[in-house]
Nucleic acid binder design. Sequence first.
DNA 1: TATAACTTGCACATTGCTGTGCAAGTTATA
DNA 2: TATAACTTGCACAGCAATGTGCAAGTTATA
Lengths: 214, 214
Amino acid sequence: MTAPAIIDRPQRRDAAENREIILSAAAAVLSINPDASVDDIAAAASLSRRAVYGHFSGRDAIVEQTLTRGASRIATSVASVEHEDALVELALLGATLWAEVNHARALANFALRGPHRRQVAAALAPLRSRLEETIARGVRDNDIRSDIAPKTLARLIEGGALAVLDEATRARMSLQRGHRLVILSALSTAGMSWRGAEKLIDTHPILHVSMGAK
Amino acid sequence: MTAPAIIDRPQRRDAAENREIILSAAAAVLSINPDASVDDIAAAASLSRRAVYGHFSGRDAIVEQTLTRGASRIATSVASVEHEDALVELALLGATLWAEVNHARALANFALRGPHRRQVAAALAPLRSRLEETIARGVRDNDIRSDIAPKTLARLIEGGALAVLDEATRARMSLQRGHRLVILSALSTAGMSWRGAEKLIDTHPILHVSMGAK
DNA sequence: TATAACTTGCACATTGCTGTGCAAGTTATA
DNA sequence: TATAACTTGCACAGCAATGTGCAAGTTATA
């Protein structure tokens, strides 16, 4: 016999894939039911519960990873949004959220209740501060309502957007329709009349279907 | 000895009171955390867990009663709302919801997830159909936006209102401020410009502080 | 193709919550 | 004030979910 050398092989490719699959499944399942069990997640990932524990130390770790992941995806998208017109920028922020519906909803489900509140709040901080910034600018430019404090207004726009995301999911809305609806919701809450909002969208090609970045 | 007559005394007054206290506590606790345990509810009611089981057959019964109760309170309030101007009526519906914040939020927490979905949906049906009605009338009168289907719009207004309720609770907003904010949110989502919404409120005393009914 | 990486299924201990029984108190009220 | 109504605390069984160990498979890859 040759030497019984202890060889360390690298992680197998399919294992790494499965890890991703689990996180995707978690995002999908948790966005519907934030109390979903490890078994539920495993089933959605077409893996055994036991295998899941091979990838994550426990349910909390899965939730944590899912949230961190969703938050950073959104943060990244949000960072690249910019426009001279605060209203257009606001609309683009809404569109960004729409592009990440599943992640956004998973986050939203944990934003209020449960022991992950703080973590989620921290993870969403970039989006929120960005939103407040844009709103403050819009108020200065007289484009956005001044009868509600920017901080409060930011929360209301955020809440309204999530309501749209829920309704869009529930009604299996088309991508185009959902895209436009999130934008309309944000602009309306920001103070625009509906005709004004429609017009703004129509006159800015960047707000149409494909949105700016990939 | 006299006859060992088996006497049936009526329920004691404090017991009936305790039942009410439990339901109030449940509404408060469940509006914050829909997964609250029987122990949490008992603690909020300043009673032992065991005593709670003396009043209700189980957690489900408590939840069920709480929801039914909240729904009927809201349904009653909603039924008395009426105004020739659809926009004003919409605003009044919002104010009604505000007057029942705790119950409304408790309901909302169960409207989406869990096995009580159907029950809650059924209980909220009157409010929703009323909302859709009012919206449809507003659209006919050219007072409400026509770019979003009335059914969808109803859901968005509902969602927006709940977002306000959440934010108002979180920020410990004053009654007046919350009242006005819910109305503003509804009118904005309905398509009004913010100046238009402010003006509408100011020109209709019925939309001010004390709202119509008690 | 040999082998380590990975998955699976099962068993098992643990935890937290539900719901019930009972004995010993406390409190409203006939 | 006697007594039934009510509350309390404790013990206990049941259940669902978590997290771990292990033996026997399957699959990627060196």
